[in-house]
Amino acid sequence: MASVLEIRDLYAGIEGQEILKGVNLTLRQGEIHALMGPNGSGKSTLAYIIMGHPHYEVYSGDILLDGESILEMAPDERARAGIFLAFQYPVAIPGVTVANFLRQAVSAVRGYTAQKDEEGPVGSNLIPMREFRKELTEAMQLVGIDPSFARRYLNDGFSGGEKKRMEILQLAMLRPKFAVLDETDSGLDIDAVRAVAEGVNRLVGPELGVLVITHYQRILNYIQPDRVHVMYDGRVVLSGGPELALQLEEKGYDWVRQQFGNAVKA
């Protein structure tokens, strides 16, 4: 049965400042949803809260994975439950190679680490090296990353496009049920957007639900959403089919502001 990620009437913020004001959104495994909206509407906050960033507070409402609340789970538990966030600003970890990092992450998410045998030899709590190498090579090919990146330090000195592609590589390796792509297109030129989008398209299928968070419509030229949601001032104010994205592209966000700005403030 397909898994469901449900955000239910979520109020949340940071340092006492309310940013999300009653978000409702339901994503099923196998579906692609786009979440659009002007800057400051709360899109990235929602992404962080889904992943469990410790700085954000949830005031009320819930996030449910197959009916179970995940709000009490630490970020690593959420990852192991099948949630993934492709960061808008991926973090560099100097001195840790992509291969090393990914082997440990894959092992954690797939339960190798949990089976750790205290008496066992080094590596007994990790995915077998041969299996991992094979998978990594295939995944790198799939998302279009040069194999030499396996030996580079994670995101250290990467260009904007390389960082975003590295997020997609992680998505490919970790095989989550749900992936939130937070402004994966931001700061990239059109060729880089296409490359990243192609990577994502190769991963979509019945096992993966995707929430594409974006300010611009252009990434949606390559990733076809089933549903488009528009966020404004901490709420999802409009939902529709792919045509909604085109409408926004045409009319801009002013139209949304005019239609919902006053109503929300009132």
Binding site: D76, I93, G95, V96, Y153
Partner: peptide
């Protein structure tokens, strides 16, 4: 860094594993 810890934890590593990985990277030279 909290952001480094959060990033690694979002990939399934426990807080201790994440901190250990950051330290291992730090002494990698």
């Amino acid at each position: 860094g909290e952001e480094q810890l959060f990033y690694l934890m979002s990939r399934g590593l426990s807080e201790e594993e994440a901190a250990t990985m950051i330290v291992a990277g730090f002494i990698e030279p």
